[in-house]
């Protein structure tokens, strides 16, 4: 029995190892090709490692950073993601606490609308949203976070509500009796207890905002501001013949920071995703 079990386990590990290699391969292939010279990137040689002749060093990366405006796009992406997620976390946790604790038709309707907004596809509002954003001058990277707050509120409020319901009411009542006003109660008592949910919501919203393509494309002035997904997409449209080397270097430059952040915080990320789903 135990012998059979170790044999089965060995087979499973071998299978999982093979699958892992297959999982990483697409990224590895792009990485390999970014190190080749432009002429060496053809469909027949794409699966080969770079050789002494075709090795281009970091030339493709330099050209991606210098001539393709990568750094600027990176800056805008960071700015938008950071402001949006911070705003979502503060405003939505406050709102979720309020609508869970104060019962009444206002809370009920708001909760229903938030849940509805999670299911409604973006295409439903994309045209009117971009015109509304133009009208209210919310079309720069500095204030597009208001739009993200509006559109990301559904998921955030939903998850915060799920958690607030499990927080005992007595703690909050005690702090009120001790003389805290609701603002103090929220920031000193409730918010610290919400920490794990703040991490989950922050991760999910950051993944969404960072990778979002269509919303910034429609809302921002594309000639002035470009986020990273917009930059990658532009390679297809406006260049006559796509320069594969710099394009793939751009892809790698986009992926590498994500992978570093992921490896550093994978415990929280995986936990956050699992917690988010259980609440859902």
């Amino acid at each position: 029995m135990t012998k059979k079990k170790t044999a089965v386990n060995g087979l499973l590990i071998a299978l999982l190892t093979a699958l892992s290699v297959a999982w990483v391969y697409p990224v590895f292939m792009i990485l390999m090709n970014t190190l080749k010279t432009e002429r060496a990137i053809t469909t027949s040689t794409a699966f080969l490692l770079p050789t002494a002749e075709t090795f281009a060093g970091v030339q493709n990366y330099v050209s991606a950073i210098v001539s393709q405006g990568f750094l600027q796009a990176l800056g805008y992406s960071l700015l938008i993601t950071f402001t949006s997620v911070a705003l979502i976390l503060i405003c939505c946790s406050m709102c979720a606490w309020y609508i869970t604790r104060v019962k009444g038709w206002v809370s009920k309707i708001l909760y229903f609308l938030f849940v509805l907004s999670m299911v409604v596809p973006f295409q439903m509002v994309m045209f009117t949203l971009s015109s509304t954003a133009d009208m209210l001058k919310l079309n720069t990277p500095w204030n597009i976070c208001v739009i993200y707050l509006g559109f990301g509120a559904g998921l955030a409020v939903f998850m915060f509500c799920g958690f607030v319901r499990s927080v005992p009411l007595e703690v909050e009542e005690a702090s009120m009796i001790d003389g805290c006003n609701p603002v103090q109660t929220f920031f000193l008592i409730v918010l610290p207890m919400l920490k794990p949910t703040l991490v989950s919501v922050g991760i999910l919203e950051a993944m969404w905002v960072w990778n979002d393509y269509l919303l910034p494309t429609l809302v921002l002035d594309i000639k002035k501001y470009m986020t990273i997904p917009m930059l990658i997409q532009r390679f297809r449209g406006s260049f006559g013949r796509v320069e594969m080397g710099p394009m793939m270097a751009c892809i790698m430059l986009t992926i590498i920071p994500i992978i570093i952040v992921y490896l550093a915080g994978q415990k929280y990320i995986i936990k956050g995703v699992a917690a988010g789903a259980v609440k859902g």
Binding site: C91, C92, M94, L113, V146, L149, G150, F151, A153, V157
Partner: peptide, 11 residues
């Protein structure tokens, strides 16, 4: 704050 943004961004 959330409601205003939600009204602009969704409703």
């Amino acid at each position: 704050p959330t409601f205003l943004a939600f009204a602009i961004g969704f409703i």
